[in-house]
């Protein structure tokens, strides 16, 4: 009985109608709820999925048809995709994006781990202050400091026109990653670490050989976040790399595609889908880690 009520309360239809209420209307209500819930769910899924369908259909239309309000392609122009991939620069943008996202992710994780570990497991003065500063810099819009940063990278380091001004800072810890990893590390009981310390392990050893294996899912999650962040970044490449098409990333190059390709909606949509595809593929393989990570940002902590 109790179990039935619980399920009902959580919104799941109970397997058996309770004896107290007459069975008929209860059953009808259940069916109506079922229909209602599923109608809503299907509507929502259509809202999420139909845009992809339309984009795809347009991407295989002819140039002329893409400028009409037709929904269904009359000729299936698969060649649009080859055309996009053969666009000068498209391959370079791919390489650049992979380099930015790959190195950026690696640097971020390696540099943020010890910081997060210290913030979670060391006791020291100013820990509260440090943590507050981490959270503050996490919330800081990147545009706030962009002018001096640009001046620094362009005038002092002579690195504008490359992606290095975006990659190098990632070797010095990323606030969001530090924060997330710290939240994970808090869940590790300190007894494990103390045991290792008694055995004479150094902190670095403990971090590498005990902690890292334990929080592998967390590392996967923050790595994915960082990878997507780099992959999607538009503002960074726009500021530092816009003057050099050889350093563009897909996200930035995609927009300029309009100019290079003189906005043919069909090619534009093909290019758009080609940029979306890898992210979505990665998601399907790493769905679990990703969802866990997102959950942790908001629920725990």
């Amino acid at each position: 009985m109790a179990q039935t009520v619980t399920a009902e309360a959580a919104g799941i239809a109970p397997p058996l109608a309770p004896a107290r209420t007459p069975p008929r209307p209860r059953r009808r209500k259940r069916v109506l709820t079922w229909i209602g819930v599923h109608t809503l769910a299907v509507t929502a899924v259509l809202f999420f999925i139909l845009p992809f369908v339309f984009l795809f259909l347009t991407s295989v239309m002819s140039n002329k048809q893409a400028l009409t309000s037709d929904l269904w392609p009359t000729s299936w122009e698969w060649g649009n995709y080859t055309k996009v991939m053969k666009t000068p620069g498209f391959g370079t943008w791919w390489r650049n994006t992979l380099m930015y996202a790959g190195l950026g992710t690696l640097f971020t994780v390696v540099s943020s781990l010890p910081v997060a570990y210290a913030l979670a497991k060391f006791r020291f003065r100013f820990r509260g202050v440090a943590l507050m500063l981490v959270i503050s810099s996490m919330m800081l819009p990147p545009q706030v400091i962009i002018i001096p940063m640009y001046i620094f990278w362009a005038k002092q380091m002579h690195l504008s026109g490359t992606l290095w001004p975006l990659i190098i800072p990632m070797a010095f810890g990323d606030a969001f990653t530090i924060f997330l990893l710290r939240q994970f590390l808090l869940t590790i009981p300190s007894e494990y670490l103390d045991a290792a310390r008694v055995d004479g392990c150094g902190e670095l050893r403990i971090l590498i050989s005990i902690v890292v294996p334990m929080i592998r899912p967390a590392i996967a999650a923050v790595a994915l976040f960082q990878f997507f962040y780099c992959w999607n970044d538009y503002f960074g490449p726009q500021v530092y790399a816009s003057e050099n098409p050889g350093a563009w990333t897909l996200s930035y190059g995609l927009e300029s595609f309009k100019g290079a390709h003189q906005v043919n909606w069909n090619l534009m949509m093909a290019a758009t889908l080609l940029v979306m595809a890898p992210v979505i593929l990665v998601f399907f393989f790493a769905q679990k880690a990703f969802i866990e990570g997102v959950t942790l940002t908001g629920v725990k902590g």
Partner: peptide
């Protein structure tokens, strides 16, 4: 574009 020109020249690259 002109934006890129000004930016390129100003950055010295």
């Amino acid at each position: 574009t002109d934006d890129k020109i000004t930016q390129g020249i100003r950055s010295g690259k």
